[in-house]
Computed example of a mutant assay.
Amino acid sequence: MERRCLSSESRHHQHSDRGQRRLADRIDDYGAVVRQLAREFQAQFVPLQEPFDRAAERTKASDWIFDGVHPTAAGNRLIANAWLDVVQRSILAIR
Rank of each mutant, 00 (worst) to 15 (best):
E2T: 11
R3M: 09
L37K: 11
Q88P: 00
W83R: 08
L84F: 12
F66E: 07
N81S: 07
L37G: 03
S90K: 06
T59H: 11
F41I: 00
D85V: 01
R54K: 13
I79A: 03
F45K: 03
R35M: 10
C5G: 08
R4K: 12
M1E: 11
R54I: 05
V46N: 05
S16T: 15
F66G: 13
W64N: 05
R26Q: 14
A24Y: 07
R58F: 00
L78T: 05
F45W: 10
K60I: 08
K60A: 14
S10R: 09
Q14P: 02
S10F: 03
M1C: 09
Q49P: 01
R4L: 09
D17P: 04
L23S: 12
E50V: 08
I94A: 11
R3N: 12
V46W: 08
R26K: 13
P71H: 06
E40D: 15
L6K: 05
R58Y: 00
H15C: 03
E57L: 14
Q42F: 04
Q49T: 12
W64I: 03
R95D: 12
S16P: 05
A73I: 06
D53I: 02
A82Q: 01
R3W: 02
V33C: 04
Q14E: 13
R18M: 11
A61K: 04
A56N: 07
V34G: 01
W64E: 07
L48K: 04
R21S: 13
I94Y: 09
H15I: 06
L84Y: 10
D25S: 14
R39C: 04
D63R: 13
E50F: 08
Q36I: 00
L78H: 02
M1T: 13
I94P: 00
A74T: 02
Q44I: 14
G19C: 14
S90Q: 06
V86G: 05
R11F: 10
D63V: 05
R4G: 00
